[in-house]
Amino acid sequence: MSDPMLRLSGVYTDIAQYHILQGVNFDVPRGQVTMLLGRNGVGKTTSLRTIMGHWRARAGQILLDGQDIAALPTPAIARLGVGYVPENMGIFSDLTVEENMILAASSGPLDRTRLDWLFSVFPPLQTFWKGHAGNLSGGQKQMLSIARAMVEERRLYLIDEPTKGLAPAIVSTMAGALRQLKDQGASILLVEQNFSVARALGDSAVVMDDGRVVWTGAMAELAGDAALQERLMGLSMEAGH
């Protein structure tokens, strides 16, 4: 088995006096979608922010393709090919959709072919290309947020709750986009509360509780075991959907 695209080993992160991550260990295999699951407040977003360098790990290793990135500043991590979609989407409201995308293409000008693909995945982005991102609806902003990460090929995508609070039709669009990304062989670490999306996309799953990883395994195994879901996350996929 090849080395994983991302490996967290014994990662501890503190925020003020709170010990949020308490020795997190998991891998994100190459070319797979790894679901990061768990109840609210167990450290999923903190894990992504720590990988991205927004919060500094107090201890532990974060290996991206074998290189320890735990001490690198956020821009350097992004330049290594990590695309990040934060929970709050991080849209620049004062900029147009086009300007948001130009900024996201940090290694050069926009690639027309890739842009056409993104327009086919997220048609509203083409419709509102010259409009201010702040005027988009919640779903359209989320499309822009994901499209920004996808505007260039990345080694790893970190995506935090892309379907949160969205209408079913938009959830379907998001899932379709992520499916296409997966089919291209992308390595994705995805935090997702929508279990039907998680089940459809995930190859493997990492379940967190209280700042620690409490279970790792195949997504299919978790999806097929209601008792395990109940024990790990307090609800089953069947109950949820």
């Binding site: 086919s120 995945v121 997220f122 048609p123 509203p124 419709t127 509102f128 409009g131 005027n135 609806s137 359209q140 039709a169 938009i170 379907s172 669009t173 899932a175 379709g176 986009a177 499916r179 296409q180 459809a200």
Partner: peptide
């Protein structure tokens, strides 16, 4: 799952 919505979004 569909890749794109079948409605045409508009801005009010």
């Amino acid at each position: 799952m569909t890749a794109a919505p079948d409605h045409t979004p508009t801005m009010s």
